[in-house]
Amino acid sequence: MKRNIVIATLTAAALAGGTVVAFAANDDGTAARPGTGTTVRVVTDRDDDADDRSDAAEDRTGVRVGGVSAAEAVAVALRHTPGTAVSAELEDDGADAGAWSVDVVRGDGTEYGVDVSGAGKVLGAHRDDEGDDDNDSEDRAESAALKGARFDAHEAALVAATKGTVTEVDADDDSGAVAWNVETVKAGTTSEWRVALDTGKITRVQSDED
């Protein structure tokens, strides 16, 4: 990649006598205009590289434009309501669009829903009494697996963020072994992934492109 870009500029003199005035960009992205003592900003390939790096960083973190990521939302919810996060879902329409709903199970087994705004602020928390009716042996086994997991909801969201913007994280035991089911969106394509509780290994379940 060339660090200096030479830009030929036609001046009024060029129109009259065909003279072409050229100036070269300095390393700081500016260029001196001959005979004026002033500098102008020159757009270089390095500026494009910076934009590409910024986009790549956004993909790695999973941060939505103007909002917090799934991992950040889980962390905020757990600071407010300590326990085990079992799911996090991004609201994508209506007045709550951009906010997160995070489900947390406390040490005594009670479940709370914690709402986190797109700015990372807790909007409120409420006890999920309906969850008490479903507290059977399967749910207890799932909760126990999540409590001892090396990769919790926060870590699973970070792992899946390498695949796109995370929009949902949920515990799943459909395959007979509890794992995290994570939904991501990238370039308009929605994909589902499984993240192992013990190793963090991520495998794709399905995609819109399938």
Rank of each mutant, 00 (worst) to 15 (best):
D174N: 12
T61V: 14
E209P: 14
A156M: 06
V104F: 01
W193L: 05
S69H: 02
A77I: 11
D27R: 09
A156Q: 02
A8W: 00
F23N: 08
T84Y: 03
R79N: 14
D208V: 06
V122G: 09
W193K: 00
R204V: 08
D132L: 14
K186N: 10
V104N: 02
V169C: 12
S87Y: 11
E209I: 15
T203M: 05
E192L: 08
D103G: 14
V102T: 05
V105H: 11
T36A: 01
A160M: 09
A24K: 13
V104S: 14
G66C: 03
D47Q: 13
F151H: 08
S143M: 04
D47C: 13
H154M: 09
D132N: 07
G200L: 13
D45T: 07
A24I: 12
V6Y: 03
G200K: 10
L15C: 05
K163C: 11
G62W: 08
G29Q: 00
T61F: 15
G118Q: 09
P34I: 05
R150E: 15
V178W: 02
E168G: 14
V102L: 07
A179L: 10
V65G: 13
K201F: 06
L197A: 03
A179F: 02
H126I: 00
G107Y: 06
G164Y: 01
A88D: 04
V122K: 02
R204S: 08
E209A: 09
D47N: 12
M1R: 05
V40W: 02
G109T: 00
V102K: 03
D172N: 01
T165V: 08
F151T: 02
N181A: 14
E91F: 14
G120D: 04
K2G: 03
A177N: 13
D129W: 04
A25Y: 01
G124K: 05
D55V: 13
D45I: 11
F151K: 11
V42R: 02
N26Q: 04
A196N: 04
H80K: 15
S175Y: 06
A145W: 03
K186C: 03
D96K: 00
W180H: 05
A160F: 04
D136R: 08
V65Y: 15
E130F: 07
E91S: 07
I202R: 02
T162A: 14
A56L: 13
V43Q: 06
D115N: 15
D172S: 07
A95W: 12
R53E: 15
A22G: 06
E168H: 15
V122P: 09
D28A: 03
D128I: 00
E155W: 12
G83A: 00
E142N: 01
E72T: 11
